[in-house]
Design a protein around this nucleic acid. Structure first.
Lengths: 319, 319
DNA sequence: GTGAAAGCGCTAACAG
DNA sequence: CTGTTAGCGCTTTCAC
């Protein structure tokens, strides 16, 4: 363990001078600087990050809280955060929660322990009530419009869903269903609210059996289609909040000889590459940008206004 | 900043007793233990992780080096690592490199600085020569059969590709092409070697124009198909090392009225959900398990034998 | 420009 | 069982 003291000794200077050289501080005579650099070389000195972190009270590391790492949505958000973090010399710690409350709380705990400088909550499962004791004086960014929090970035899911309904109705769709992931969480709640309001605004009733939940993956989409087939009264269109699920629906429909969009129209969200591959009309959601903005909010000292991101519709042949 | 000393003072014990209580060490009189716990509660004490890390010389954090976070392959590997890490009380730091040499080296640097206890290299871009100075005495796991390294886990890509060729040939395919991501890296090199050997073993010649590189995403697959259409002499089958790319090929083929597998057979790798959605015959690759095994290798003190994972073919309709 | 010294907060060997 | 003390290795204020 060659440390700063040994360097100081070898270079015949004090530890503070070594520290200055190592951190590019000014006011070090070139001669001594060289001596220090020389000693560093010879002794193969490497700074100990933990000592720096302790001394500075900062780690230049940000934590990201998310349920899964193998979903395109979270991959993309991570990519956005990582890109921005890199620019600013920050590293990323991921807290994969599987939506387990304890695992999620662990991340907040680590924040309190100063293991990370801040947290970006890509998606959560604990209530704000549970989390708020951990929020005080901490730098936490939420990727949702969570009332009572300072830093947040989100899509206006309410309007997006309503826009989706407004897109479907003039094309002859009055019976519209919805596929979502969860019923918990601001984002999901906003979607459901937008859906209900939109349906009711057109004089229709929301039908519970037309709302499919727990839809995450391609496989779930396939099951939705099978479910849809069984329905006595079928919606003529589905709004699907993930391209993966939409792709599952479309692929299974093809197998069953169901014609998209004539038998069933599909309007999806995210506009990932898979939407194009399946010719699915999809709202483009700037997920990567969401990640970038989240990181930039983290960097800001005083929480500014929430960042709201826009979506726009990419029309293909599924509607 | 309420620290261990203040707790000691408030509880009327020494810091070491506090430390013992905090770390569940035995031999503390129940009465004092309660006093400490009481003080911890009252002062809202929270341990400083960096101080622990410094003192212990350990962080219980492992770094993962990968180029992109938004590809299913890496998402899945991360998921595997994260799951296993959680079980063993480790956290994950991700070093997203974009295949930039400097960004990749930064991860090794952080390892030397003891910012992480070890590194899992999911994919790399620096040569072993460049990396080896950073490897000495460090706990690094490679997800490839990199000669000269201790800990590694990988698929036998050579055999897998040859098995692919052996699957195609009896089905009438002599003209076979290949789609890969990179030409650099052990995994890619093994694939190319397997491909060349397989083709030559059947008395054919490898044709450069039938090897498509830089194929990562759906979009790349689409371009491959367009390229294929332009070829004067076309392969009748393509071995594709990623389901995303294969899906891009198949989706574009449908658009162009090219019949899979009659006009062009597709044999893919990974067997992600998207392969099923497009009815693509694919080698199932246990990527998540790769991540799990990588983490377990990290945990092992003495590097045991390399871990080699098996693939097996899932037949669908694309061949 | 430079050095001494006081932290940062926790762990663990040692002595009792 | 418990306390003292010497680290772990770096940063930073203050005085010269």
């Amino acid at each position: 363990m060659t440390n700063i003291r040994k360097i100081a000794h070898k270079a015949g200077v004090s530890v503070s001078t070594v520290s200055r050289v190592l951190n590019d501080h000014p006011y070090v005579k070139e001669e001594k600087r060289q001596k220090v650099l020389q000693a560093v070389k010879e002794l193969n000195y490497i700074k100990n990050a933990n000592a720096v972190h302790l001394s500075k009270g900062k780690t230049y590391c940000i934590g990201v809280v998310l349920p899964f790492l193998n979903l395109p949505y979270f991959g993309e958000i991570l990519q956005g955060i990582a890109g921005e973090a890199l620019k600013h010399g920050y590293h990323l710690k991921v807290f994969q929660t599987d939506y387990e409350k304890e695992a999620e709380l662990d991340a907040f705990h680590r924040l309190q322990m100063k293991e990370v400088d801040g947290l970006i909550i890509a998606s959560r499962t604990n209530s704000l009530e549970t989390l708020s004791p951990f929020l005080h004086g901490q730098n936490v960014v939420f990727c949702e419009n969570l009332h009572g929090t300072e830093k947040k970035v989100f899509i206006n899911h309410y309007e997006a869903i309503r826009a989706g309904i407004d897109h479907l109705q003039p094309r002859g769709h009055k019976e519209i269903g919805l596929c979502i992931h969860r019923t918990f969480g601001t984002n999901s709640e906003e979607r459901i609210r937008g859906f209900s309001d939109g349906i009711e605004a057109s004089g229709q009733q929301v039908r519970k059996e037309w709302i499919f939940t727990e839809c995450i993956d391609l496989k779930d989409g396939r099951e939705v289609l099978l479910h849809w087939q069984e329905l006595k009264q079928k919606p003529t269109a589905l709004i699907v909040t993930s391209d993966q699920v939409a792709a599952g629906i479309v692929s299974e429909a093809r197998r069953k000889g169901i014609v998209i969009p004539d038998d069933l129209a599909i309007l999806s969200f995210d506009n990932h590459p898979i939407a194009e591959a399946f010719d699915i009309t999809s709202f483009e959601v700037p997920i990567r940008k969401l990640g970038e903005e989240a990181f930039n909010l983290f960097l800001e000292d005083n929480a500014s206004a929430p960042v709201i991101l826009e979506t726009h519709l990419i029309e293909r042949t599924s509607v």
